[in-house]
Amino acid sequence: MTRDKKVLSLAKRLVEMSREGGIVTEAGVSEVLAGIKKIKPRRELLLLKTYLYFIRKAVAEQTAVVATPGALGKDTLAAIETQFSALYGRTIHAVIEENPSLIAGVRIRIGDDVYDASVAGRLKRLAESVR
Protein backbone atom coordinates (compact mmCIF):
# COMPACT_ATOMS: atom_id res chain seq x y z
CA MET A 1 0.00 0.00 0.00
CA THR A 2 1.58 3.20 -1.17
CA ARG A 3 1.56 6.50 0.69
CA ASP A 4 1.62 8.54 -2.50
CA LYS A 5 -1.42 10.78 -2.18
CA LYS A 6 -1.74 11.30 -5.93
CA VAL A 7 -1.69 7.56 -6.63
CA LEU A 8 -4.15 6.90 -3.81
CA SER A 9 -6.53 9.57 -5.08
CA LEU A 10 -6.32 8.35 -8.67
CA ALA A 11 -6.87 4.72 -7.60
CA LYS A 12 -9.97 5.68 -5.61
CA ARG A 13 -11.33 7.61 -8.60
CA LEU A 14 -10.71 4.59 -10.83
CA VAL A 15 -12.60 2.38 -8.35
CA GLU A 16 -15.55 4.79 -8.49
CA MET A 17 -15.37 4.66 -12.26
CA SER A 18 -15.50 0.86 -12.04
CA ARG A 19 -18.91 0.94 -10.32
CA GLU A 20 -22.15 0.59 -12.16
CA GLY A 21 -25.14 1.44 -10.04
CA GLY A 22 -22.93 1.53 -6.96
CA ILE A 23 -21.59 -1.96 -7.63
CA VAL A 24 -18.14 -2.82 -8.87
CA THR A 25 -18.71 -4.88 -12.00
CA GLU A 26 -16.37 -6.89 -14.16
CA ALA A 27 -17.21 -4.76 -17.16
CA GLY A 28 -16.43 -1.59 -15.31
CA VAL A 29 -13.10 -2.93 -14.11
CA SER A 30 -12.23 -4.15 -17.61
CA GLU A 31 -13.04 -0.74 -19.01
CA VAL A 32 -10.84 1.00 -16.47
CA LEU A 33 -7.96 -1.43 -17.05
CA ALA A 34 -8.22 -0.86 -20.79
CA GLY A 35 -8.04 2.86 -20.21
CA ILE A 36 -4.95 2.50 -18.02
CA LYS A 37 -3.31 0.31 -20.62
CA LYS A 38 -4.08 2.85 -23.28
CA ILE A 39 -2.99 5.94 -21.37
CA LYS A 40 0.02 4.35 -19.69
CA PRO A 41 0.18 6.80 -16.76
CA ARG A 42 3.30 7.42 -14.70
CA ARG A 43 3.96 4.85 -12.00
CA GLU A 44 1.56 2.48 -13.71
CA LEU A 45 2.55 -0.58 -11.70
CA LEU A 46 2.07 1.21 -8.41
CA LEU A 47 -1.25 2.57 -9.60
CA LEU A 48 -2.41 -0.91 -10.62
CA LYS A 49 -1.42 -2.41 -7.27
CA THR A 50 -3.26 0.32 -5.38
CA TYR A 51 -6.29 -0.04 -7.69
CA LEU A 52 -6.27 -3.80 -7.05
CA TYR A 53 -6.20 -3.23 -3.31
CA PHE A 54 -9.19 -0.86 -3.40
CA ILE A 55 -11.10 -3.08 -5.88
CA ARG A 56 -10.67 -6.10 -3.58
CA LYS A 57 -11.86 -4.02 -0.65
CA ALA A 58 -14.87 -2.74 -2.61
CA VAL A 59 -15.76 -6.24 -3.81
CA ALA A 60 -15.46 -7.59 -0.27
CA GLU A 61 -17.72 -4.83 1.02
CA GLN A 62 -20.39 -5.56 -1.58
CA THR A 63 -20.17 -9.34 -1.24
CA ALA A 64 -21.59 -11.47 1.55
CA VAL A 65 -19.48 -14.61 1.73
CA VAL A 66 -21.81 -17.16 3.29
CA ALA A 67 -19.77 -20.05 4.67
CA THR A 68 -21.80 -23.21 5.28
CA PRO A 69 -21.12 -26.92 5.42
CA GLY A 70 -23.80 -27.74 2.87
CA ALA A 71 -26.11 -26.13 0.36
CA LEU A 72 -28.53 -23.32 1.19
CA GLY A 73 -31.88 -22.61 -0.30
CA LYS A 74 -32.21 -19.83 -2.83
CA ASP A 75 -34.74 -18.14 -0.65
CA THR A 76 -32.23 -18.09 2.15
CA LEU A 77 -29.56 -16.43 0.00
CA ALA A 78 -32.13 -13.92 -1.25
CA ALA A 79 -33.14 -13.13 2.31
CA ILE A 80 -29.52 -12.62 3.28
CA GLU A 81 -28.91 -10.27 0.33
CA THR A 82 -32.08 -8.30 1.10
CA GLN A 83 -31.48 -7.93 4.81
CA PHE A 84 -27.80 -7.03 4.57
CA SER A 85 -28.39 -4.65 1.65
CA ALA A 86 -30.88 -2.87 3.83
CA LEU A 87 -28.46 -2.92 6.75
CA TYR A 88 -25.47 -1.49 4.87
CA GLY A 89 -27.45 0.75 2.53
CA ARG A 90 -25.85 -0.71 -0.57
CA THR A 91 -26.39 -3.73 -2.78
CA ILE A 92 -24.93 -6.84 -1.22
CA HIS A 93 -24.39 -9.93 -3.37
CA ALA A 94 -24.25 -13.26 -1.51
CA VAL A 95 -21.94 -16.10 -2.51
CA ILE A 96 -21.69 -19.50 -0.88
CA GLU A 97 -18.40 -20.84 0.41
CA GLU A 98 -18.44 -24.44 1.56
CA ASN A 99 -16.85 -25.01 4.98
CA PRO A 100 -17.50 -28.44 6.58
CA SER A 101 -15.73 -27.42 9.81
CA LEU A 102 -18.74 -25.29 10.73
CA ILE A 103 -20.76 -28.54 11.28
CA ALA A 104 -24.03 -26.71 10.63
CA GLY A 105 -25.30 -23.13 10.33
CA VAL A 106 -23.73 -20.21 8.49
CA ARG A 107 -20.94 -17.66 8.93
CA ILE A 108 -21.35 -14.51 6.85
CA ARG A 109 -18.41 -12.22 6.13
CA ILE A 110 -18.97 -8.78 4.60
CA GLY A 111 -15.79 -6.79 4.31
CA ASP A 112 -14.28 -6.80 7.79
CA ASP A 113 -17.59 -7.72 9.49
CA VAL A 114 -18.31 -11.34 10.43
CA TYR A 115 -21.72 -12.68 11.51
CA ASP A 116 -21.54 -16.17 12.93
CA ALA A 117 -24.54 -18.48 13.35
CA SER A 118 -22.72 -21.75 12.99
CA VAL A 119 -22.66 -24.68 15.39
CA ALA A 120 -18.86 -24.58 15.51
CA GLY A 121 -18.95 -20.89 16.35
CA ARG A 122 -21.49 -21.40 19.09
CA LEU A 123 -19.48 -24.22 20.60
CA LYS A 124 -16.38 -22.07 20.47
CA ARG A 125 -18.17 -19.21 22.21
CA LEU A 126 -19.51 -21.66 24.77
CA ALA A 127 -15.98 -22.91 25.49
CA GLU A 128 -14.69 -19.35 25.76
CA SER A 129 -17.48 -18.36 28.13
CA VAL A 130 -16.42 -21.09 30.54
CA ARG A 131 -12.95 -19.51 31.01
Binding site: V66, T68, G70, A71, G73, T76, F84, V106, A117, S118
Partner: peptide, 14 residues
Protein backbone atom coordinates in the same frame (compact mmCIF):
# COMPACT_ATOMS: atom_id res chain seq x y z
CA UNK B 1 -27.49 -29.58 8.32
CA UNK B 2 -29.32 -27.82 5.46
CA UNK B 3 -32.38 -27.28 7.59
CA UNK B 4 -30.32 -25.92 10.46
CA UNK B 5 -28.23 -23.74 8.14
CA UNK B 6 -31.29 -22.24 6.48
CA UNK B 7 -32.88 -21.53 9.83
CA UNK B 8 -29.67 -20.01 11.20
CA UNK B 9 -29.19 -17.85 8.10
CA UNK B 10 -32.75 -16.55 8.25
CA UNK B 11 -32.47 -15.92 11.94
CA UNK B 12 -29.17 -14.11 11.41
CA UNK B 13 -30.54 -12.06 8.53
CA UNK B 14 -33.60 -11.20 10.56
Amino acid sequence: KKTFSDAAARELAG
